[in-house]
Design a protein around this nucleic acid. Sequence first.
DNA 1: TAACATAGAATGAACGTTCGATCTAGAATA
DNA 2: TATTCTAGATCGAACGTTCATTCTATGTTA
Lengths: 232, 232
Amino acid sequence: MYVKHMTSSGTLPFDDNVVAPVECGRTAARRAQILDAAAECFRSGGFHGASIASISQLAGMSAGHIYHYFENKEAIIAAIVQRDLERIVTMWAELRASHDIGETMVAFSSAGVLEAMNAPVAGLNIEIVAEAARNPEVARTVRAADCCCMASLIQTLRTVRQTGGKHDDEATLVDMAEILAAMFEGLMVRAIRNPMLDHQRMAIMMQRVMRHIIATPDWEAAPQEAVVPGTT
Amino acid sequence: MYVKHMTSSGTLPFDDNVVAPVECGRTAARRAQILDAAAECFRSGGFHGASIASISQLAGMSAGHIYHYFENKEAIIAAIVQRDLERIVTMWAELRASHDIGETMVAFSSAGVLEAMNAPVAGLNIEIVAEAARNPEVARTVRAADCCCMASLIQTLRTVRQTGGKHDDEATLVDMAEILAAMFEGLMVRAIRNPMLDHQRMAIMMQRVMRHIIATPDWEAAPQEAVVPGTT
DNA sequence: TAACATAGAATGAACGTTCGATCTAGAATA
DNA sequence: TATTCTAGATCGAACGTTCATTCTATGTTA
C-alpha cells in the first residue's frame, strides 16, 4: 500500500481515519528523505539513469520500502519537479510582498543568478526542463509553475514601470519578462557549458540588464524594422 | 568488429587498410542513418531512455548490426553530440567569412533564434546540456565546441565594435558575448517552458539586444555599484 | 571463393516492482 | 503492571521484463 499524493504543505489535512498525528510527520519526513536522495541521484545520473536501488541506498532504506511512499519511479520524478517548482513559486510570492519591489527585484536577481549557476542546481534544473520536453505530465507541471512565476514577474514589472512614470502595453511587458527569464535561464546553461565563467560578473550583468529594462523610457521606440528571415 | 571513431567530415581520411572507397561511402551513410534515428529517439526518450532496439528499428536494421558501426551506446551519444556541435561550429566559420559581419550577425541571430526555439531542436540541445552536466566525456566535447563558438563570437564583436570606433577591453568583450549566448540559449529553455511564446517576437527581441550591444558607446560606463549579496 | 553485410537468437546483467516475513511501538486487556 | 494484540514500518529475496551486447548463421557482392 502506498501513500496517496498529498499536498506538499508539510502537514496533512485532517482525515477521518488519522490515528496518531505523529505518524503524519514521520511519513512526511520519510518522503522528504527519499526526495532528497532522489534529487541527488537524478542530478548525477539523470531521471532515467538513476535506479531505485541507488536512491534507496542513499536514502538509507530498502528498495522495496520506497514503494510505501511513492507509487512508482514516475511519481518520484513528479514529486521532485513539484517540490522544486513550488520553492520558486514561493520565492516569487515573498518577493512580491516586499516594499520597494524594484530594488528588491534587482537585488534578488543577483542572488538568484548566483544560486541558479551553482553546478548541482543548474544540473537538476536543466534535467527537469529536458524531462519536460518529452514527458507530458512533467511538462504540465513545469508550465503551470512557469505561468505563475511569469505572471508575478510581469505584475512586478508593471508596478515598477508605472512607479517610474512609464506606460507600456501588455505585450511589451510580456516581452520584457520573457527576455529577463531567458537571460536568467540561459545563465544556467552557460554555467554548464562554460565552467570557467565568472558567476559574480554575470550576477552584475544581470542587475545591469534589469536596471536597463526598468529605466528605458520607451521600450517600443527601439528600431522595429528588424530583418526576420522567412521560416521554412 | 566495429568502425573506429572517425572524423565526421563526411569522407574518411586515407588509411592503410582501406579496401574499397565505395565501402567508405556506404559505411558513412549507414552511420548517418543510425545517428538520424538515434537523434530522434534521444529527443523523445532522452539519452538513457532510448533503447538500442528502438534506434535500430527506426534505422531499419537489426539491433546487433548497430554494433558494426558503433562500439556501444555511449559512442552513439558522443557521435550525436559531436555532429550537432560541429554543425554549429561550421555555421560560425561561415558567418565570420562574410563581409559586413555586423549586419550578417544581426540577421543570423534572428534565424538562429527561430531555429533554436523549434521544439525538437531545443529538446535535443537541452538533452545534450543535461548530459554534459553529468557525463565528463560529453562535457569535454561540449566545452570544446563552446570555446570555439565563443571565440568566434568575441572576435566578431571586437571587429564590429572597432569598426564602429569603440574600444573595449577583453573582459568586456567576454561579458558581451556571454550575455548574448545566455539570451540565445535561454530562449531554447523558454520555448520548452512556455510553448505559447511567440518565436517571431523573440527573434526581433534578440536582434534588438544585439544591436544595442553593438551600438552602446561605452559598455563599462553603466552603473558598477551593483549590489552583490554575499554567498553562503 | 573471400570478405563483408546483415539478421536474429542467445546471454547475462540490471532494472522496476511485488510480496511475504519480520520487527517495533503503542493500544488494549487482564 | 505485565501481557497480549495489532497495525504500520521495514526488509530482502524473488519475479518478470528489458536492456546492451555477443554470437552464430546466412545472404551478398566483387
